[in-house]
């Protein structure tokens, strides 16, 4: 079956990203397809490359990034939500005249249409939030 996943909260404050990660790992292990993981609201912060969690803690952005690389996942950060919260990739950085960017490898920034498309194309859309 084809899944779309929506994550509405950032890492650490809420369990949403952790729950989604466990769910996605289980779904992949069972042979399901993950059509897209869409990060919305504060969920865009899961894509930051600037987090430095303590060594004995999980690094959620990196975990997503590694899982994506291994399984060819499409990790999409909502552009409107990302701009509000200071999440930029290189293109966005240049376009807005900023001096740095902070998107972890494996994530990409795109529009809300990608969320609707995930709803249309996936057999099930599962939202994790607060």
């Amino acid at each position: 079956m084809k899944f779309g996943i929506v994550i509405n909260e950032g890492p650490y404050t809420h369990q949403a990203s952790d729950s989604a990660l466990q769910f996605v790992k289980s779904a992949l292990a069972k042979g399901h397809e993950i059509f897209r993981i869409f990060f919305y609201h504060d969920g865009v912060n899961n894509g930051t490359s600037l987090g430095v969690p303590p060594q004995d803690d999980r690094n959620l952005p990196n975990e997503w990034s590694e899982l994506a690389e291994k399984n060819g996942l499409d990790l999409v950060v909502c552009v409107a939500a990302a701009q509000r919260r200071g999440m930029l990739d290189e293109d966005e950085m240049k376009r807005h005249g900023k001096d740095s960017n902070n998107l972890v490898k494996g994530f990409r920034i795109s529009g809300l249409g990608q969320l609707i498309e995930a709803g249309i194309q996936s057999d099930r859309l599962v939202t994790f939030g607060d």
Partner: peptide, 11 residues
């Protein structure tokens, strides 16, 4: 904001 974008998808 999602709803306004969604409206363009004829769902």
């Amino acid at each position: 904001e999602v709803v306004l974008i969604a409206a363009a998808f004829d769902q």
